[in-house]
Nucleic acid binder design. Structure first.
Length: 518
RNA sequence: GCCGCGGUAGUAUAGCCCGGCCCAGUAUGCGGGCCUCUCGAGCCCGUGACCCGGGUUCAAAUCCCGGCCGCGGCACCA
């Protein structure tokens, strides 16, 4: 079978399997498969989902999963998507002022659309109000026992006495909290759960605590507030108030769901549908925010910033030349499974390559150059299209007798080769000469299986620095490209023929490119 | 340690709820061929998996039990 040529193969296929060879195969079925599974309890037009990042850093591939999945479901069900910044810890997870905008940029770039936007640190009065309501209803209390209250619950031996005090007393304790009578750790609002719950973290979990914002000012609201809601409290309140119908988040939140249900129960709210999916890794990339921050701090000169192409941040992948569409595609393929998934770089690159292939112009770049002198009776000219499927757009390259031509050192073994678009030549490595072969035709090269290689006229070769991420290292290539390279602006994606796809990181006289993949 | 959730080819995913149409589909990777002025793309062929052990059943990737492995959680972090 393999020995047959394409038309023979096709013919055979048509004879043997007529139903497979048809022009319109089962495309529809496959597209159906790529979609996300239906959401339980979802009504078209009524679905409300959310993406709720902590603005303490830019988002990465792991965060892209909930962002893309949620927005995709909003699209499927013609629902609404809420973007909510969860920035209620100015102390240990201090928000980064720039991150709010950077995250929005990344989301827009990813094609994530949202219809409403909230910032938790700007909604403090709402949390206070609900806290009061819960205190009034007697399903929360102000623990003023400090370390002792915490210890009592941890050991399961009891709880702070205020748990049994009246709502009125607790309400006034809460006022004292707000008024600044207590320091950090001296008073917290706890949600009454079960003081002997098998999981100690669920026992009367903390809904609001005091943070000394004189010492740890919040980047948005400074020292205006001292009493801050915890994640679980703020999330429950917001998910309800924002009318969220489906919560899709990582499985690290499974236990939080259990905690949050106590708020719903106390307030008589109907809880949304919760769906937890596994963690996402990107093979060979660091995703951890804290690790990236650490690297940026400790090895400042080694990395280019949060968007370094060696990082798995969205910005880093973008800078690497990965298209948003490719990221969407692999994430949608992973879907909402509870299990963890490791996206292989080969897979992401393959998807990206396919998308890039139709748009990226082909440019000749010689990575490891050796200069040969052209021996020819007269000048020769090549006309090469920028893209094989758009032959009309092309540039001319001309070399004359005595001119230097750069080719890959590896290609410069003695023998014949074809300089792409130019003609067939014989290499003399001793004299560093390129002499013309009598037959200049492409057919000659084909029939003799002469390698077809890229080349650059030495006289106007443009030095190009190509940075190739490899793990945490960056390999620097110093090669030369044809002059057409100067015509591309930042962010252009090109294919360097026989080298790989690259993205222009810095245009100019001596451009800098970043290697994406083969 | 305790609690929860998972385990389909190298990777990812379909099938598992409602057992048979699954000697397990798809994508990518890998090997080969055809085609193409690229080592890219396209087309074709091939390669390769139901964690292990029991049980239920005429029939199990699918249901039950046990084990092993992996991940997550056990904060006044989100």
């Amino acid at each position: 079978m393999n020995k047959l040529d394409a038309s023979e193969q096709k013919k055979l296929l048509e004879e043997e399997y007529p139903e497979l060879a048809g022009e319109a195969p089962k495309k529809k079925e496959e597209e159906h498969r790529k979609g996300l599974p239906p959401l339980p309890n979802a009504v078209e037009g009524k679905v409300r989902v959310r993406f709720a990042p902590n603005p303490d850093f830019v988002i990465h591939m792991g965060n892209a999963r909930p962002a893309i999945i949620n927005s995709e479901y909003a699209k499927i069900y013609k629902g609404r998507m809420v973007l909510r910044f969860e920035d209620t810890d100015p102390r240990t997870k201090s928000p980064l002022k720039e991150a709010y905008d950077l995250i929005k940029q990344d989301l827009r770039w990813l094609g994530v659309e949202w219809h409403e936007e909230y910032i938790q640190s700007l909604r403090m009065d709402i949390y206070y109000k609900i806290a009061r309501e819960m205190l009034t209803r007697g399903c929360a209390y102000v623990d003023t026992c400090g370390e002792r209250g915490r210890e009592l619950l941890r050991s399961g031996e009891g709880y702070c006495e205020t748990r049994d005090a009246s709502p009125e007393e607790n309400l006034s304790l809460f006022d004292k909290m707000l008024e600044g009578h207590y320091g950090e750790g001296e008073a917290v609002v706890r949600v009454k759960t079960d003081p002997r719950h098998p999981n100690p973290s669920i026992r009367d979990w903390v809904a609001l605590r005091i943070i000394d914002t004189e010492r740890y000012p919040h980047p948005l609201v400074g020292s205006k507030y001292r009493v801050w809601p915890t994640y679980n409290f703020a999330v429950s309140v917001d998910d309800h108030l924002m009318g969220i119908t489906h919560v899709l988040r990582g499985k690290e939140h499974a236990l939080n769901t259990e905690k949050q249900l106590y708020v719903y129960k106390c307030m008589g709210w109907e809880p949304p549908v919760f769906i937890h999916f596994g963690r996402l890794k990107l093979e060979g990339f660091i995703l951890s925010k804290s690790k990236i921050r650490e690297l940026l701090e400790k090895q400042h000169d080694k990395f280019m910033g949060y968007d370094d192409p060696r990082f798995g941040t969205i910005a880093g992948l973008r800078r690497r030349g990965i298209l948003a569409e490719a990221i969407r595609q692999v994430i949608l393929e992973v879907g909402v499974k509870p299990g963890d998934a490791t996206i292989s770089w080969a897979n992401l690159a393959a998807v990206n390559r396919k998308l890039l292939d139709e748009r990226a112009d082909r440019i000749m770049y010689v990575d490891n150059p050796v200069e040969l002198r052209l021996e020819a009776p007269s000048c020769v000219e090549a006309e090469i299209p920028f893209h094989p499927s758009r032959p009309a757009r092309k540039r001319k390259l001309r070399v004359c007798p005595g001119d230097g031509v750069l080719i890959e050192k590896n290609d410069a073994s003695s023998g014949e080769l074809r300089l792409m678009g130019l003609g067939n030549f014989r290499v003399d490595t001793g004299e560093n000469l390129l002499s013309m072969v009598e037959d200049q035709s492409l057919d000659y090269a084909r029939s003799k299986r002469v390698p077809i290689v890229q080349w650059v006229p030495a006289s106007d070769a443009v030095p190009v620095k190509v940075l190739e991420p490899q793990g945490l290292e960056l390999i620097v290539h110093n090669g030369y490209a044809e002059p057409a390279i100067r015509g591309y602006s930042v962010d252009s994606k090109l294919q360097f023929i026989r080298f790989g796809f690259i993205r222009i990181d810095e245009p100019g006289r001596e451009p800098v490119a970043i290697y994406a993949h083969k």
